[in-house]
Design a protein around this nucleic acid. Structure first.
Length: 803
DNA sequence: TCCCGGAGCTTA
DNA sequence: AAGCTCCGGGAT
């Protein structure tokens, strides 16, 4: 028996299956999708079985045997195996990367180098001492001792042998439990033989004999049976009790809430949308629905209902949210409705917790997963529904290999399982809405807020006028008055600081120099703690300079608005307001998002001040005012989606106000009130914005009118980066159809990251059937020729940004 | 002549 | 990717 194995090595010449012989004793447990350990070159690696066959095309003498099988039950289902093949082709990644991304990190192998002492004769005392009594020790021991050179010599001479050891990271958490041994007679004889003074022991046995539950933890024995360590230990020694290891799941800590599940009666609109989804579910149709519902229109309640239907039919559901750790309220609602049938998957969990949640899905113990992007690979076997909430969010696209979009994966899986997909958003991506208007997706619209509140009133404030009138504060008169008013009424306020592409930087007031990162073409961000400047791209840190590095002027200070600065100003303007700040600094520790949001929800603060992370999901009845302090910053990104992003953000943030009985008010402060993305935010109507933006996209030949592919070339040397970018561009121009536009090469908007200069080429096309094939050829040229020069080439099909 | 680092090759 | 062999140049 022969198996094809995709080995755990991401490199170009290895991106194909390798044949291995299955030893006799393993043949009955071999399955496609299981992980195995195999010899590869002169090391051992992990791999996935992707095929089982009788004969190999190679001579049998060239084949090696599998070392061991790790999974008796495959971790990659047949469906996911097919999906990985599709992803490999769709995102131009290695097959191993596609397979790895589907599994929790805990299942990924890590490798350790070990040195084995085979022939002590001729090895010096010092080296021998490192081994002590052990036969093998870690490679690092020699490294630390500074004896690498000597070690190499011994390896050559055959005194030592180098071994790679595969380490499994997936640790199953266990708990010790105690129970009475099965042999009833023995228990009774022992019980009779107990000395008279062993009262506690006797009591414990009698108590245990009366219980239905077979085994107990020490904790339970202590609290229920009033036992103690000594008693239990004595009984174990006598052979009456035995200890066993029980597998348990890590408990994901959540704060205490005193709310409960509430089933809302659906509005006619909601009912109508749900009906269409239900029809698709009942008829096993793989329809993709675009659920376009304004903020507060009750999309979540539709999701919950549709999922419930799938569960009742014995199927499972995937619910994706952009970044779930930011929206504990959403998770909460799912847990309340579906209780322990829900698994949760997001970046806030530890590797062990993710592993446990994944296993619940894999074993079929849960019916729903609520999670971020990677939850789209949940190994459910009978999917009935897939939902992407806030489908326009760019977090659904993975930014490094494999560069997949969760939406595409969702649609692929829906075709496999014949189940519907729901893409939900108040502000759909232009791509999705365009597809809906062309009936590729089925459009479902919710125009009314579920509780029939009107949308909040949006005021656009021209900050230039404020400045002219001598108001140099970051609060316009209108917003400041509104804040004061709401504070008096004891209502809550959300203040939003748009920080994407813009943060506090250090500027010389004399020569205008902005302090930039030495490694990257990015200005350093000012952090107040420790007076540090940090680079958000490479992590470089340096203290704030006392004088300008260019002109030595001392008039150098930080500029721009950070949340801390706004907080200071709030305390000055509204001294009695209680403020909660939510940004990268205050949410560094685990669970801090949830804690802050809960505090705000419980009314412990009047003002919630934050960045992007407060834009979505907040649903508190007492929020009646939303202020956007600086709407423009996302507008000036050198990206064709800048306007779309701004409009979406404004609409999302505004939607936080007045979701319940009280009317909401919104102030959007801007220096460019005439920009259409800002103007259309006033009405919060999606359609007019959509039509306007579509005109722009058409004019400049961007998606959804054209598809994009971004090819980036980087090198430490500017000239080489530019040269090879030109080679790549010219090659593409030569080899792609004449109707395809190949633009560039140009320097990327961020021209340097981590000391590597970046050049790019943009491919625009409506139809290019040979694209993937040609890109694969280009990759081949790069992998075999250019890579030697230190060039790195990356290809992103349907990039989410082109910076 | 020894020893290293780099280039090139192979992995079943 | 990572480990091996081969080869050339500088140190010995």
């Amino acid at each position: 028996m022969i198996v094809e194995v995709i080995v755990d090595v991401s490199a170009y010449p290895i991106d194909r299956p390798f044949d291995y012989i299955v030893p006799e004793d393993l043949q009955t447990v071999i399955e496609r999708g299981s992980r195995v350990h195999v010899p590869f070159g002169n090391r051992k690696v992990q791999g996935f079985i992707t095929n089982i066959k009788v004969h190999s095309d190679l001579d049998i003498s060239k084949l090696k045997e599998i070392i061991s099988i790790i999974d008796v039950e495959p971790v990659i289902t047949e469906e996911l195996l097919q999906l990985s093949k599709w992803m490999t082709n769709k995102t131009l990644c290695y097959e191993i990367d596609a397979l790895q991304v589907m599994l929790p990190a805990a299942l990924r192998a890590t490798y350790k180098k070990e040195i084995m002492l085979v022939e002590p004769d001729g090895v010096d005392i010092e080296s021998l001492a490192l081994f002590g009594a052990k036969e093998t020790i870690a490679y690092e021991v020699f490294e630390k001792a500074g004896l690498l050179r000597l070690m190499k010599k011994y390896l050559n001479q055959g005194n030592f042998r180098l071994e790679t050891v595969i380490k499994q990271n997936a640790k199953v958490k266990t708990i010790a439990k105690y129970r009475i041994v099965k042999d009833v007679e023995l228990v009774h004889t022992q019980l009779n033989e107990l000395p008279k003074n062993a009262v506690k022991q006797k009591e414990l046995i009698e108590w245990l004999l009366m219980q239905k539950q077979p085994s107990f933890t020490m904790e339970e024995l202590k609290s229920f049976a009033k036992a103690n360590n000594h008693t239990v230990k004595a009984l174990i020694d006598k052979g009456i009790l035995e200890k066993e290891k029980k597998e348990i799941y890590r408990e994901i800590n959540s704060l205490e809430y005193n709310d409960q599940d509430r089933r809302f009666k659906l509005t006619d609109e909601q009912q109508e949308a749900l009906q269409k989804i239900n029809d698709a579910q009942d008829n096993d149709q793989n329809t993709t629905f675009l659920l376009h519902g304004i903020t507060g229109s009750g999309k979540t309640e539709i999701y919950l209902n549709a999922i419930e239907r799938s569960i009742n039919e014995g199927k499972q559901a995937i619910m994706l949210v952009p970044e779930i750790s930011l929206t504990p309220q959403m998770t909460r609602r799912f847990k309340l409705r579906f209780d322990d049938q829900v698994a949760v998957m997001h970046s806030g969990l530890s590797a062990g917790e993710k592993f446990d949640e994944w296993r619940k899905i894999w074993r079929g113990e849960v019916k729903v997963v609520v999670g971020a992007r990677s939850a789209i690979f949940a190994p459910f076997k009978n999917l009935g529904l897939i939902i992407l909430d806030e489908e326009h969010e760019s977090t659904y696209k993975q930014e490094d290999t494999p560069r997949y979009h969760a939406r595409d994966v969702a649609i692929w899986r829906s075709e496999f399982h014949n189940c519907p997909v729901i893409l939900g958003s108040a502000t759909p991506s232009l791509e999705s809405y365009a597809r809906a208007t062309k009936d590729v997706y089925t459009l479902l619209t919710l125009n009314m807020r579920a509780k029939e509140q009107s949308l909040p009133i949006v005021n656009i404030v021209d900050m230039r006028a404020e400045l002219k009138n001598g108001n140099r504060s970051m609060f316009s008169v209108g917003l400041a008055d509104a804040v004061r008013e709401k504070l008096e009424k004891n209502e809550q306020i959300v203040l939003f600081l748009n920080k994407r592409g813009f943060s506090s930087f250090v500027l010389c007031r004399d020569c205008g120099t902005v302090v930039e990162c030495d490694n990257c073409d990015i200005s350093l961000t000012y952090h107040r703690e420790g007076e540090q400047l940090k680079c958000h791209y490479c992590g470089h840190e340096e203290p704030v300079p006392k004088q300008c590095p260019e002109c030595s002027s001392e008039h150098i200070r930080f500029f721009g608005t950070g949340t801390q600065k706004v907080e200071e100003e709030i305390t000055k303007l509204f001294p009695y307001a209680r403020v909660l700040r939510m940004d990268v600094d205050t949410t560094r520790t685990k669970g801090s998002h949830e804690r802050i949001l809960k505090q705000f929800g419980d009314g412990e603060a009047d003002i919630l001040l934050g960045t992007q992370m407060i834009a979505k999901g907040l649903d508190f009845p007492n929020i009646t005012l939303v202020g956007v302090l600086n709407a423009d910053t996302t507008l000036h990104l050198a990206d064709f989606r800048a306007a779309e992003k701004t409009f979406q953000l404004m609409t999302q943030v505004s939607g936080r106000a007045g979701r319940h009985d009280k009317e909401g008010q919104v102030y959007i402060q801007t220096y460019t009130p005439e920009h259409y993305a800002i103007e259309y935010s006033k009405s919060q109507l999606y359609e007019p914005f959509y039509h306007k933006e579509m005109l722009v996209r058409k004019q400049f030949e961007y998606p959804p009118f054209y598809y994009l592919t971004l090819v980036q070339v980087t090198h430490e040397n500017v000239l080489l980066a530019a040269e090879y970018a030109k080679l790549a561009t010219d090659w593409l121009r030569m080899n792609l159809s004449s109707t395809t536009m190949v633009i560039g090469p140009t320097s990327s908007a961020i021209s340097k990251i981590q000391n590597r200069y970046r050049y790019q080429c943009l491919i625009k096309y409506k139809k290019e059937p040979i694209l993937v094939e040609k890109l694969q050829q280009l990759i081949k040229i790069y992998r075999t020729e250019w890579i030697k020069k230190g060039i790195i080439l990356t290809i992103d099909l349907d990039p989410s940004t082109i910076l």
